[in-house]
Design a protein around this nucleic acid. Structure first.
Lengths: 218, 218
DNA sequence: ATTAATTTTTAGTCTTATCTAAAATAATAA
DNA sequence: TTATTATTTTAGATAAGACTAAAAATTAAT
């Protein structure tokens, strides 16, 4: 199978390539992985030898169908473990990532299928991100950034764009959780802040926050 | 912290040293780890540098208090994961070892403490082996090998000596499980087999089996 | 108490995954 | 279009963990 390092590089290439038609550049990968471009070139060759990516010198990499499938399976494991940690082990949503980064590399098909069943076959992780099925397919929710909603629009909080601890902890402090209903009461042109109603409270939300919260329109 | 390899060597040294006063030999470790004596010597030096073992050239190693504590913590994780796999994920007791070997290296104190709570703070793993507490202490059950019981003696099946898949699958097939009450009906001098009563059935058990089943005397 | 056999260690090599520095290629600007 | 800048690759080095073969130390046997 694949080494820890190979899996981590593949996952990064998978995420970086999701919304782009062209290849993923060496520097992009290096930045995301906090490593050097030369290390990336080395690893890319290994991934290419294993048919996980297609590599053309100086032209970046593109993931293959096999690679995409393999990566989606790692993402599936990561997100299922995140659900487990929150639902069964009382982790908060800002604590799960680091541990899931370790757990996603455990090799046992039975383990992950049984875990899926134990959790009731969840479709989203604690941050609202979709969990791929066994075939690597997933169905992203229809969602918009809070910042793009118009005055008076209503929706349900379904995910975050930024999963950093500081952002998630901010949401906890403001008692904003996935599933909450939100209505836009006002938009302030001066600083692009937004006034919202959430669970019978009124809050003023900065533009930065509004650009990192996903809403499903009702 | 410690690498995967360091943890695996330490665990082996811990287990090999449990019932002996003298040091553990290089060859013993190599045999158990399925590796070469020279690799063991290399690793022993690393463990010694990290104060996990005391090493004297040609004299084998002894684990330190710090090493014993570290090893017991890995064993604690291994056995808690085994309980989880059996109790929550429908693994059978012959399937758990391989996966637990991976899971035992996950680093997260919160994870293991919450897992312990989720499982109801179990004291034994699915094979009847004791689970060390956070301080590395554990309390082995008073137990005897079935082969050593006298005629008419009764007890409860509390553990296995051999955890190989083939032995565990044999027990499953014979419907012998931990917790079952067993009574010795007869002992056959010719082949040292034993006649037992278990859950209203009578069985003839070979000496080899009887030497791998632990019984708590009633 | 030497010799022989076994165990353990050392020395040197290999692979994986990293890095730095330099060379090669591609992209951009004058 | 040529020169400059940025990106990417290559070459060579390093560290961890493993191996083989040979040397050294210990143990066993005559």
């Amino acid at each position: 199978m694949f080494t820890l390092s190979e899996e981590n590089y593949l996952k990064t290439i998978y995420h970086l390539g999701l919304n782009s038609e062209i290849g993923v550049s060496t520097n992009e990968i290096a930045k995301k992985m906090q490593t050097k471009a030369s290390s990336v070139t080395d690893m890319i060759k290994k991934l290419s030898d294993k048919n996980l990516v297609v590599y053309k010198k100086y032209k970046g990499v593109r993931i293959t169908d096999f690679g995409r499938n393999t990566a989606a399976n790692i993402v599936r494991k990561h997100r299922l473990w995140e659900v487990f940690l929150v639902e069964k082990l009382n982790f908060s949503w800002d604590e799960v990532h680091e541990v899931a980064e370790q757990l996603e590399h455990i090799k046992s098909p039975k383990l992950i299928n049984e875990l899926d069943a134990l959790l009731g076959f969840p479709k989203q992780d604690p941050h609202g991100d979709p969990i791929p099925d066994k075939e690597g397919n997933y169905y992203p929710l229809e969602k918009k950034l809070l910042a793009t909603l118009g005055l008076g629009e209503k929706g349900i909080c379904v995910g975050v764009n930024d999963s950093s601890s500081s952002f998630l902890q901010f949401l906890d402090k403001q008692k904003i959780a996935l599933g909450n209903e939100i209505k836009v009461l006002g938009k302030e042109p001066f600083d692009d802040s937004i006034q919202i109603q959430i669970a019978n409270r009124e809050l003023s939300i900065s533009n930065k926050i509004a650009n990192n919260l996903y809403i499903k329109i009702l």
